[in-house]
Design a protein around this nucleic acid. Structure first.
Lengths: 106, 106, 106, 106
DNA sequence: ACCGTGGTTAGCTTTC
DNA sequence: GAAAGCTAACCACGGT
């Protein structure tokens, strides 16, 4: 890191832990913070990789379903409906009907 | 509206103004609320129409720019950058560089 | 613009019109392209400003409706429903019910 | 399923496999399709559960990082940058600078 | 503690 | 039919 370009001023110090002052052990401290940061970043990256792999899997399931004749769009609606709280869902549906009636939708 | 099916129970009354009790003027009250609701809805719809027309215009500008050889993607980045607060942007960029240095990204 | 840092190599020339070679009128050519680009950018910015103003307006309408006791979430559903093609919508609803029956959802 | 209300007409048959005609084994066929559909749905649901669990994990990592003084927003930028193709990224950055120079941004 | 805001993600549309 | 861009819903965060 270039002290000149990236020290970022006093107001940022808090956003980069343990870098308040340049002591003789400055490099160690930076390394420690840097290592912690890198570790966080890499943990996130690993998790995101798995997450996006699952996204792929889901797409594949839908693709297979589509291949056997089902409509993906409708399936997605079903998945969404099933994950809603039934009471809340019914509640909202009733309100929807009420509103529709009130404005004269069919 | 069918009172039977859509009255939605007491807990919803608050979500449909002035419908707390069925008086002799019930129908008027419904009409009033219904009319207000419809008016809100239609105002939104008008505004959304204009909004999406502007969306079309924007797309056309980009299309024209693309037609003369510019990269739309980069143009979008520029538009976004220009709309950021310069101080905050610089602040964040410095922090970004600091973090990148700390984890050894070139 | 610094030729050294931003000339971006031959492969990018196409993305910046009329800059293929450095002639004696190079600066003019850059200015011309730059002016065109700036004009595009500014047109976009104007349109986006208007667009986001309309977004504000829409939010205000919803806020006002909420203030008089309506549920914004339901209103949004209504707006969306009204903008769908009725045939397509009915079609999808029937398919949804069919699927729900098929998997034993109530 | 109510044949009357949800059979959805001939044009939908293709969207619900093996239901073309009502034979003596109609109920079996429906069960088979229904079971397949349900199986697809449940596979999706399982995958989405895992996916959203990973989302939670990611949030936790960021929360922990924030707790030790790092800026989540910047970390997200880093993760995003690291997942871009380096060549493409550099390419775009150069073009961005070129465009910025052309319109006189700093 | 809630509201409002901004950022992220998913779904839909359009293009190639 | 796949890929990309645009839009809208969702969600987590910061402010009041």
């Amino acid at each position: 890191m270039s002290k000149k370009t990236a020290q970022a001023g006093a107001q940022n110090v808090a956003k980069f832990p343990h870098n308040q002052n340049d002591s003789e052990e400055e490099r160690d401290v930076e390394n420690i913070s840097g290592k912690r940061l890198k570790s966080f970043i890499e943990r996130v990256e690993r998790l995101e990789e798995e997450k996006s792999a699952l996204g792929e899997d889901i797409k594949e399931v839908y693709a297979e379903a589509k291949g056997t004749g089902f409509e993906v769009k409708i399936m997605r609606r079903i998945v969404k409906l099933r994950k809603m709280d039934p009471d809340k869902r019914q509640e909202e549906d009733m309100l929807l009907e009420l509103y529709q009636s009130a404005i004269g939708m069919e």
